[in-house]
């Protein structure tokens, strides 16, 4: 279960961003890369990152659990995070969340039976004016998500 050569290369370029004696700075980037490859951060994956960066394993675990976007458990193929903060809520994101829940048949924090979707409630994503906003697998942001657009999105995410 070791990281791929491609991931290792990407981690190297993250490490290169920081002074030579500050490899630990690359831990967030390395965990993002590892999660992108594996889908989530298993203990052995975090151990491996600790080894690469010369960190105590528990220090890596601290970072992975502090930042909300790391997956410490496997998720569905598509993790959908919808922001429900006050401004988004005022602009209809709660309705959008209800629509998502109804369409997927799951609540926040749950995964569909077919393993396709995990639904998460998000905090501010810095895109409030474009609410409702849905983030797919931490990477692709969809904004102004009306119910119709949500239906299209769900169809597209196989």
């Amino acid at each position: 279960m070791t990281l791929s050569v491609d991931s290792m290369k990407k981690i190297d370029s993250e490490v290169a961003k920081y002074p030579a004696d500050q490899k630990q700075s690359a831990v967030m980037g390395a965990l993002i890369i590892a999660q992108d490859e594996k889908g989530w951060l298993a203990t052995e994956t975090m151990d491996e990152v600790a080894g690469i960066l010369g960190m105590a394993p528990v220090a890596v675990y601290e970072v992975a659990t502090f930042y909300g976007m790391y997956n410490l458990k496997p998720t569905g193929k598509h993790k959908l995070t919808i922001c429900t903060c006050l401004p988004c809520g005022l602009q209809g994101s709660l309705d959008a969340a209800d629509h998502l829940k109804a369409r997927l048949g799951i609540d926040f924090g749950e995964t569909t039976g077919d393993g396709r979707f995990t639904l998460k409630e998000g905090e501010c994503m810095g895109a409030c004016a474009m609410a409702p906003v849905i983030l797919v697998n931490n990477k692709k942001m969809h904004d102004y998500m009306s119910n119709e657009k949500i239906d299209v999105l769900l169809r597209e995410l196989k």
Binding site: K17, K23, Q24, V27, I32, Y67, M69, Y70, E123, C124
Partner: peptide, 27 residues
């Protein structure tokens, strides 16, 4: 110059938490 991505912690908008985070620690 380099870019560093946060990953879901509002507190890192606080400047010293941001520095801790840049150093590869909890923010």
């Amino acid at each position: 110059m380099h870019a560093h991505a946060g990953y879901g912690a509002y507190i890192c908008g606080e400047e010293t938490a941001l520095l801790e985070s840049l150093e590869g620690k909890k923010g």
